[in-house]
Design a binder for these strands. Structure first.
Lengths: 343, 343
DNA sequence: CTGTTAGCGCGTTCAA
DNA sequence: TTGAACGCGCTAACAG
């Protein structure tokens, strides 16, 4: 098997110089039509293909963006990466993928691999238990632009894309109020999560707008395990003011909560109505899908994160000019309540 | 910001040659301890990191494997890519990812991108409508080893990993027979799919083993859309020998079939029992999950495909020695029936 | 219009 | 034990 033809080889065969070949292949204006066609013809004949690794090497650019996600098997992230890939592909970038499986150590390992591979930029949704941000600092030091999305480290000087849950939560609670519910419970996530704080904020805001008093005992928190959710449900359902509707932290929590309700002889959609946050397309097929859910548009988040990164990459900035106030791009999408047709 | 330090830079500072630095960094035996430590110390100080792209370039190896899948949002494939990534990572390979979205054109585009990026090898599950295999031939011609998995082109001279559905189907039908069912329907996929033929084969085999006669009218096929499945259900339920159990092509079909049954007043798990093939972890949460499903072990398929590819990559063969009879690796896993605890 | 030269960062001879 | 020189494939600055 003859190894892949190079510019040199073409030059040799045509008795011209390598640079002439290079220019001919790039349609450089200063090349004679005759040589140009001769070169291009031979190139086609030999199935010449430029060695990208050589180009990457000398251009100091790989046209690759690294993507680090917690878990692809979560529908949210697989949708997100589709958005990333589509947008990246549209701009001739490829995607180097890594899953942290929500482990800080793995995340760090992947970051270092990505750095080794000289990705042009990085899109990251951080692992749940990542506390130490040293690897992100390394990236900055290495001059690799990074855009975070959805799961964002608690830092100010970063680029990120996120979806604001407040608006969607307000809509959700309003929707339930509109349906006549007056006592609305919320199963929230761990307090330290921004996502949890936003949900609570939305809840309170909606109540205030309706001039209803905010009862903190109606907002309980789950550690997001089945057990945690069961405990939360128990707490809610043992209140004197028992809720007739519940806003669940996400679809997984909603599923567990519904199961708990069913097991305890509650009639879902009669005694107890559920609203959730969209993670699972399949939740429509479940026994009792939530009547509505707050959509976070993962595909779009992925797209926007990629756009943002590409913007940074092409604005060939000196990698660090935090002088300008709008240096750190922060894109915030609004979540939105989607009402399902429960038949 | 000082651009990344190079071997040359270290050499300059230490007044030694670049090759000495290179050797010192690689613990080459012929380097004096003194110079070695001096070099390594300075390297550490400067945060020296070898430029992988330069190494890739001259080694003609990128330590990257390309993965082309139809659709990451299908749980099957996201599990598979986890297997791929884990196994690849264990061997210091990274994963360049591309989704064909089941479109032949996109698949071809991705193949060519992957080739450009000089991936060391490729793992592919082909798009549904891919009929033309020219891009795979290009890969062979380019000397890029490719392992197919699950969705495999109809070619003999390829490496592949697949899961045999016959065994699982036999188990499924046997299971239903054991539960007392005598008339068992099957909603199969399009005839041209190997997957469909294997399911039918398993069905027939199981019937024969039980000395029951095979009634072809009990095996209908769906184009896998909701409408196709509805039609298939109608056909099955209008038979004189009406089935009391149905084996569905996959979880999506099963979901649609169950919905159809419910809508038509059949009592699922009483009048009609469903068995399926596992695609969706969430199917457990549905109103009427299948009582059992045939597992295809996507994670393991991904792992095995990667192992196979790595084997090829490391057995630095001349890329084409189809002389040996076992040149084309064919790994076949057995599917397996998993019985669910329906409460 | 075309050729020559240099250099990207590294590993690897070959020579000292 | 070390250094000098070369090449990997390509682009670009400079020189005709």
């Amino acid at each position: 098997m003859p190894s892949a033809p190079t510019i040199k080889e073409i030059a040799r065969r045509l008795n011209i110089s390598a640079s002439t070949v290079s220019r001919a292949l790039h349609d450089h204006p200063s090349i004679g039509l005759r040589t140009k066609t001769r070169v291009q013809q031979l190139a086609a004949e030999l199935n010449y293909e430029p060695n990208q690794t050589a180009i990457f090497f000398q251009q100091r650019k790989t046209f690759t963006i690294g993507v680090i996600l917690p878990e692809l098997s979560e529908a949210f992230f697989s949708a997100a990466i589709s958005g990333i890939e589509d947008m990246a592909g549209r701009h001739q970038y490829s995607v180097l993928m890594g899953q942290s499986h929500d482990e800080e150590e793995r995340e760090k390992l992947i970051v270092s691999t990505m750095k080794k591979h000289r990705v042009d930029g990085l899109i990251i949704s951080i692992a749940k238990n990542t506390k130490d941000y040293s690897h992100f600092n390394m990236l900055r030091q290495a001059g690799i632009p990074t855009v975070f999305f959805d799961r964002i480290p608690n830092l100010t000087d970063i680029h990120y894309v996120a979806c604001d849950m407040v608006s969607g939560t307000v809509q959700a609670v309003k929707y339930l109020l509109g349906k006549g519910h007056r006592v609305i419970g919320m199963i929230n996530g761990p307090d330290k999560l921004l996502a949890s704080r936003q949900r609570e904020e939305g809840y309170i805001k909606a109540m205030q707008k309706h001039r209803l008093k905010y009862d903190p005992t109606l907002v309980v928190s789950s550690d997001l395990t089945k057990e945690g959710t069961d405990k939360a449900m128990k707490k809610l359902l043992s209140l004197k003011r028992k809720p007739t509707a519940i806003v669940a932290f996400n679809d997984y929590v909603a599923l567990d909560a519904v199961q708990f309700a069913v097991k305890n002889k509650y009639k879902v959609n009669e005694d107890l109505t559920f609203v959730s946050y969209a993670n699972l397309p399949m939740s429509h097929y479940t026994a009792f899908p939530p009547v509505a859910s707050v959509e976070q548009f993962p595909y779009i988040q992925g797209q926007r994160a990629t756009e943002t990164l590409l913007e940074i990459l092409t604005s060939n900035a000196p990698a660090d000019s935090p002088a300008s106030p709008d240096h750190w791009k922060k894109v915030i999408l609004e979540s939105q309540l989607m009402i399902h047709n429960v038949e």
